[in-house]
Write a protein that binds this DNA or RNA. Sequence first.
DNA 1: ACCTGAACACCGTTCAAGT
DNA 2: ACCTGAACACCGTTCAAGT
Lengths: 229, 229
Amino acid sequence: MATQTEPSPQRVPLSKERVLRAAIDLADTEGLGTLTMRRLAQELGVEAMSLYYHVANKEELLDGMVDVLGTEINERVEQIEEASDWKTAMRDRILTARKVMMLHPWAPTVLESRTNMQLSIILYFEALLGLFRKGGFSYDLAHHAMHALGSRALGFTQELFDPGEDSGDDDSMAMLEQMADQLPNLVGMLMEITHDGPEDTLGWCDDQTEFEFGLDLLLDGLDRTLHKT
Amino acid sequence: MATQTEPSPQRVPLSKERVLRAAIDLADTEGLGTLTMRRLAQELGVEAMSLYYHVANKEELLDGMVDVLGTEINERVEQIEEASDWKTAMRDRILTARKVMMLHPWAPTVLESRTNMQLSIILYFEALLGLFRKGGFSYDLAHHAMHALGSRALGFTQELFDPGEDSGDDDSMAMLEQMADQLPNLVGMLMEITHDGPEDTLGWCDDQTEFEFGLDLLLDGLDRTLHKT
DNA sequence: ACCTGAACACCGTTCAAGT
DNA sequence: ACCTGAACACCGTTCAAGT
């Protein structure tokens, strides 16, 4: 059945496309830390050095990953039916971008380590900017707005210190009480937070609430600034 | 003159303190990329392995650097005479923290890579929280507020993609005009921005303006939320 | 108590060579 | 055109040993 030039079981040749997909897959499932050239090659059933035929170096690999992420975001974002007011239109867009970001835990770290903008991301920002303009923003105010949103424009905030597991258990609660005199406010706050909602405080949901709170604070503020001047 | 136990030219023994100071110095001047255990040891006139007597591993080294940074911030922040309203009190505090942060370009990256909170940083947040409480915030609203501020509470925002040098020169301006039809808004904005203020657009100053704009947007928004409910 | 030498298990990357 | 083997210059870190 096989034609004469078929050499081996999996003979699909490598391509930049395939390398990037595999890199994203690996980073998604095993974490950014295990994304090494050697491991990635292994995943593709190839020697590490073969990758360099399709990608100049690791930086270009990471750039490429960001670019397909951006493309993925743009595809999803284009399917939104655009709200008439700029604020909810922008809110919808950003929350959609966030949904894609959540699928790729490596994205925040990699995005912030980039030194080159990728086209797909530029296009995403161009569209956001268009929304601002349609809403009546001057270029100057839109520029401030983009800076104020920062990474939130792409749907994420890089948390300082993720506390990990030890938030609600008995051990850490006991420790908290010990520190109560030196850190009255922090302890007071944590006691109330952890006491209140043990059901829906499941990491993602919680972060989502905080993200939307911060986003709305900024969007509302921008809207007010817009109508003030 | 020398006492009998003086062994050699520089005989000051290593200490965790000295290791951390040297690490901060090295990262400040040469960048985080050149802060390796081997290079740090060399800076201290010692073999790389000697460091491990004072510091468990590199993570602990970075933790330590963050802790002295936090201490430095707290010292500066305590000298502020506190404004009567919470908003300017918090604004002053955060902008003071920012002044310290600006001296340590590695700080944002390292802070966001930490997994353990350092005491000095906890104390900084405790104080911020105290300001919120004094201003009349519930624990719940203060909690939202801290999340909304994010890294801005410590005086920095991690920029996505720093464009580097190629912002205002003739080459990039020519490129911009070529892309004008695909990226009308982005090009329009950049043309206006780079056209407007070539004098005071000196990197730091510019970032400072954007930082304060975003900060005030958030603080004003929080103030409004506070007085609404 | 404090520091060192030699070694290990990793990195990304170059380069000449194979098919 | 596409892939590989061997090697280089780096990492962080362990461990037994020196003073």
